[in-house]
Amino acid sequence: MATDALNAVSDAEIIASSLNDPEAFAALFDSYHAMLYRYVSFRLGPEVAEDLVNEAFLIAFRRRRSYDLSYRDARPWLLGIATKLIARYRRAEVSRYRALERQHPLQRVEGPEEAITHDLIAAGARPALLHALSLLSRGDRDVLLLVAWSDMTYDEAARALDIPLGTVKSRLNRARRKVRDALGDVNPLKEDSDG
C-alpha cells in the first residue's frame, strides 16, 4: 500500500500533464468533486452547489497554467477558488443561515460535517451556531469553515484564501471566540473530554 502511495501521481503532475493533454485535468475533477460539493453544499445549500463546483473547476482549468507546480496538493487551490465564488453569494449565505436558524429539521448532507451537524442538532445548539455564523465577517467565516469543516491546515487555508498565515490565525481565533460567546462559552467545533 505504501508503494502505491509513492507511485501515485501528484495533483501538480496532473495539472502539468493537462497543459499538453487537457483531458488529463479530468483526474482532478474525479478526485475532488465530492469534497468540493460537500463544502459548497454546506455553505450555500445543495441547490447551487453543483453549478458553483462546476464553475470552480472551469476556473481552475482555465487558470491551470498559472498553478504553482511546487505544491503537489491542489486541494487548497481548488477550495480557494470555491471560497471566492462563495463570496459572491455572501448575502444569500447569510440569509440561508438565518432561515435555517428558524427551520427544523435539518436537511442532511453527506460528508464529515454531517456528524458535527447531527451533534449540534441533538444538543440544540444548531440555531445558535447558525446565528453566530451569520454574524461573522465573510473573512472570519471563510477561515473558520475551511479549517473546521474542510479539515484544512492553517497553511492550506492561507493558500486557499491567498492571505498570510498570521491573518488565518487571527481570523480563526476571532471567529472561534465570537462563536463561543454566542453559544455561551461552548465551542461546538471541539468535543468535550470528560475526565
Rank of each mutant, 00 (worst) to 15 (best):
S66Q: 11
G80P: 11
L58D: 13
L85E: 08
D73S: 15
S66E: 15
F61K: 04
L79I: 00
L85Q: 10
P76D: 03
I86P: 03
S70D: 14
K84S: 05
R90H: 13
R88T: 01
L79H: 04
A74Y: 05
V94L: 15
F61D: 04
Y97F: 14
R91M: 09
Y89I: 06
S66A: 15
L58W: 13
R98V: 15
A82S: 14
R65L: 13
A74S: 15
Y89K: 11
A74K: 01
D73F: 14
I86Q: 05
R96V: 05
L69A: 13
R98P: 00
L85C: 01
R65E: 14
Y97I: 00
G80Q: 09
V94K: 11
I81P: 08
D68F: 13
Y67W: 09
A74Q: 03
W77P: 00
R88G: 10
L85W: 03
L85P: 07
R98I: 13
R90Y: 01
Y71S: 10
L79V: 06
Y97V: 04
Y71P: 01
R91I: 10
T83E: 13
W77V: 06
D73G: 12
A60G: 07
L58C: 12
G80K: 03
L58G: 13
P76R: 08
A74M: 10
Y71Q: 07
V94I: 15
A92F: 06
L69F: 15
Y97T: 00
R96Y: 02
R72W: 10
R64N: 06
E93P: 01
R98S: 05
R98D: 12
W77A: 04
R90S: 04
S66K: 14
L79G: 05
L78F: 12
R96E: 09
S70A: 13
L69E: 12
W77R: 02
R72N: 14
L78S: 05
A87S: 09
W77H: 06
S66T: 11
Y89S: 03
L78K: 08
A82E: 01
P76W: 05
R96T: 03
I86S: 14
Y67T: 07
K84H: 10
Y97N: 10
E93C: 08
I59Y: 13
I86H: 04
I81K: 03
G80V: 06
A60R: 09
R75F: 07
V94W: 06
R75V: 03
T83C: 04
T83A: 11
I86D: 03
L78V: 04
R75P: 01
A82Q: 02
S70T: 12
L78Q: 02
S66P: 00
W77G: 00
K84D: 02
R64Q: 09
A74G: 05
E93G: 03
